[in-house]
Amino acid sequence: MENNTIDARGLSCPQPLIMAVDALKKYPSFTILVDNEVSKENIIRVMKDKYGIEVQLKNDGEEYALAIAK
């Protein structure tokens, strides 16, 4: 796992999404933790549509770790 891990658990959109977009400006790659389906969907969709990035969904279940790399 990369060093850059952002914890967005417990937050609902748009906050995790804003955090992901901000992190994209700072780090070449990072992992963001979310714990709701909507934030997971949003981040995956926006990363793909806006930045052409395929998000790697690391673990499924109650929480998600989304690995994002430019």
Partner: peptide, 11 residues
């Protein structure tokens, strides 16, 4: 959210 996402991430 429809309007907000336009402002925040142009989505």
């Amino acid at each position: 959210g429809a309007i907000r996402d336009l402002f925040i991430i142009k989505d």
